[in-house]
Computed example of a mutant assay.
Amino acid sequence: MSAEQQEKPERREPQEPQEPLAFVKHTKRGDKAYAVPAAPAPLFDTHGHLTCFWSKDPAEVLVRAGRAGVRRLVTLFDPIADEMPLEEFRHRLAEWRARATAQAAEAGMPARGLPDVSYLAGVHPYGAPVFSDGALSVVEQALADPRCAGVGEIGLDYHFDADDNIEAAPHDVQIACFEQQLALACSRNVPVELHVRNDGADEARAAHADAYRVLSEVGIPAAGCVLHCFTEDRATMERFVELGCHIAFGGAATFKRNADIREAFAACPLDRILFETDCPYMAPEPLRGIECEPALIAFTATALAQDRSERTGEDPADIMRAAWENATALFAG
């Protein structure tokens, strides 16, 4: 074989161009497809539950996320709620990534286009009644894994849903569970993500008041603290930003009735904003009601950046770029 023949690149068949990514919403008036908006900056979903889909394949979800511009994703492992050993969870993550890589290659999509997936480990406040030293030990074990980026989601939930058969834990039980895991995050200096939800009828916002007190007394990791799925007002946002927290905004901020959340997003310091999906829950408008997935963060980020831009005059691309930079700095590694 001649040198010229040896250097000749292998001929490959051209790939069929992929159709634009879109999601369909089923309504009484018929089905309607919504194309995923093109993001002017990379997207980072800082909170999504890959273990919780009820009808979707996580591997396929990761491929669609890559197509939507999601470059990084933080998922969650809960030693109590996930009902699986840590090693099984790690195995599932690896298996989903492997299948996603194969599916992406088959579609002509480079593997580097898939989101890099890391995770947080922690016991949700729903698990507070059965929280134990054993569960805390599993969280500690997870922190030894390079793919584990911190502790979460932990916190306080004073709005338990009887329809979901969730036993309401006394506030002091939840606070004790929260304090122990927060102390672990502080001692290891890793980021922590908080779930803080008030009783719907509580205008005093007792859960946020108690969370603020716990953070003030136990401390906030220098590595960072995130209020995940923020659904409160501007004043609440400002109090937690003053403590040093980041604020993560998800699909709920796009709902028509939630003008207070959009006001909070527009007023939040640019170096403190994050985006998330909290998938498979709370898909953003115009897809509210469908099973959410990381690709839908493009709708949330686009809508909130545009709304903020109209209020402040900032370039939407700069807003989205700031959210990406904040998230990559927070979950470095």
Results as ranks from 00 to 15, higher is better:
residue 2 S to F: 02
residue 3 A to L: 14
residue 15 Q to C: 13
residue 16 E to H: 12
residue 18 Q to A: 12
residue 18 Q to W: 09
residue 18 Q to R: 14
residue 27 T to F: 03
residue 28 K to M: 14
residue 30 G to Q: 11
residue 34 Y to E: 06
residue 39 A to F: 08
residue 40 P to H: 08
residue 57 D to C: 03
residue 57 D to T: 04
residue 60 E to K: 12
residue 61 V to P: 05
residue 63 V to D: 08
residue 66 G to T: 05
residue 69 G to W: 14
residue 75 T to C: 12
residue 78 D to N: 15
residue 81 A to S: 15
residue 89 F to G: 08
residue 90 R to K: 15
residue 93 L to H: 10
residue 95 E to V: 15
residue 97 R to L: 04
residue 99 R to I: 01
residue 101 T to H: 08
residue 102 A to P: 09
residue 103 Q to V: 09
residue 106 E to Q: 15
residue 111 A to H: 13
residue 115 P to Y: 05
residue 118 S to V: 11
residue 118 S to R: 14
residue 119 Y to R: 12
residue 125 P to C: 11
residue 126 Y to G: 15
residue 126 Y to E: 15
residue 131 F to I: 03
residue 134 G to R: 13
residue 134 G to P: 02
residue 135 A to F: 06
residue 136 L to P: 03
residue 145 D to A: 05
residue 148 C to V: 06
residue 149 A to T: 05
residue 151 V to E: 07
residue 154 I to Q: 10
residue 157 D to G: 15
residue 158 Y to R: 14
residue 163 D to P: 08
residue 172 D to V: 02
residue 172 D to F: 03
residue 176 A to I: 01
residue 179 E to H: 02
residue 179 E to W: 01
residue 183 A to I: 02
residue 184 L to Q: 03
residue 185 A to Q: 02
residue 186 C to G: 04
residue 188 R to Q: 00
residue 191 P to D: 13
residue 199 D to K: 11
residue 202 D to G: 06
residue 205 R to G: 02
residue 210 D to K: 08
residue 211 A to M: 13
residue 231 T to W: 09
residue 236 T to P: 09
residue 237 M to I: 01
residue 237 M to D: 10
residue 239 R to G: 09
residue 240 F to A: 13
residue 240 F to L: 14
residue 247 I to C: 12
residue 252 A to P: 11
residue 253 A to R: 05
residue 254 T to E: 02
residue 254 T to K: 01
residue 254 T to Q: 02
residue 256 K to F: 00
residue 259 A to V: 05
residue 261 I to G: 07
residue 261 I to C: 05
residue 262 R to G: 04
residue 264 A to V: 01
residue 273 I to K: 13
residue 283 A to E: 01
residue 284 P to S: 07
residue 287 L to A: 06
residue 288 R to E: 00
residue 290 I to G: 04
residue 292 C to W: 05
residue 292 C to Q: 06
residue 296 L to H: 12
residue 300 T to Y: 04
residue 302 T to V: 01
residue 313 G to R: 07
residue 317 A to K: 04
residue 317 A to H: 02
residue 320 M to W: 08
residue 323 A to W: 08
residue 326 N to C: 07
residue 327 A to P: 08
residue 329 A to M: 10
residue 329 A to R: 14
residue 331 F to A: 11
residue 332 A to Q: 12
